[in-house]
């Protein structure tokens, strides 16, 4: 048995070493943040998510689409039916054909998808110096580092170090791979005014909008974790019971 343990320890050390080497080669990891939705008991801070939706609407949605989201989904961050209808009605979306068979636009409904800023990718590139602003529906899941990474990007704008050659129209960002990002700094101190007077420094805004984006990426998270706690508790109880029965059944043969 001792040789097994020694081999396991040796393997663990070797593997830790290997991953250490790997980590050193990659770009700057964004610092870890405290998130309301982190951990086993995490839930979304709905006030932050609602402020985040305001930031998305006022800032991000000028360039970034969110095509997997419907206005009805906003009930997930605590908006009531009237609020959702009002939000949806504030945009014009295609609502079908008129009597002459021509496509017509009308106010959105809760069943409408979030309105995209551009009709297609080509139009988006044309308006953004050739770069395509990625769809944000799943952005927190779609990036290594998740919420911390997105927060890092939003707060990581700096002056480039000396000797760093920044290409025309690009911006320096500490946490973007290669440090050259086409997106100009999106959030400034005090840029978005919140109704309740919540703090709105860049870091606060970034924190709120990332909470919102984490929710759009994983709207099932709260339900999932709460079900998970019950499932694990139940299974632990079952393990104990089953093990007790096993001991009883096996008692006579040992």
């Amino acid at each position: 048995m001792r040789s097994v343990r020694r081999a396991t320890v040796a393997a663990a050390l070797l593997l830790a070493g290997l991953f250490g080497i790997a980590a050193a080669q990659e770009s700057v990891p964004p610092p870890k943040q405290e998130w309301s939705f982190g951990g086993v008991f995490g839930t979304y801070d709905l006030a932050a998510a609602q402020r985040g939706f305001q930031i998305y609407s006022e800032v991000c949605s000028n360039c970034h689409s969110m095509r997997l989201m419907y206005y009805r989904d906003l009930s997930g961050i605590g908006l009531n039916e009237a609020q959702i209808k009002a939000v949806a009605a504030s945009v014009q979306v295609p609502v079908g054909l008129n009597d002459q068979g021509e496509p017509v636009n009308g106010p959105g409904t809760p069943a409408s998808r979030f309105k995209s800023p551009f009709p297609n990718d080509l139009a988006a590139r044309a308006a953004n110096n050739g770069a395509l602003p990625p769809d944000l529906s799943l952005i927190v899941n779609a990036r290594e580092g998740g919420a911390d990474y997105v927060y890092g990007i939003l707060t990581g704008y700096q002056d480039p170090p000396e000797n760093f050659k920044l290409q025309e129209g690009m911006n320096y960002n500490e946490y973007f791979p290669g440090h050259q990002i086409a997106m100009p700094r999106p959030l400034q101190d005090g840029q978005v005014e919140f109704a309740g007077g919540a703090p709105n420094a860049t870091a606060d805004e970034a924190h709120d909008v990332v909470t919102f984006l984490a929710w759009t990426s994983n709207p099932e998270l709260v339900e999932r974790k709460q079900m998970g706690i019950r499932a694990v508790l139940f299974l632990t109880l079952m393990t104990g019971l089953t093990y007790a029965v096993k001991r009883k059944i096996w008692a006579e043969v040992h």
Partner: peptide
């Protein structure tokens, strides 16, 4: 086998839910 299955399902559940 049932004992093992319960322990396995805990591991499975941790991945699926958390």
């Amino acid at each position: 086998d049932s004992v093992g299955l319960c322990v396995f399902l805990i591991v499975f559940a941790v991945f699926v839910f958390f």
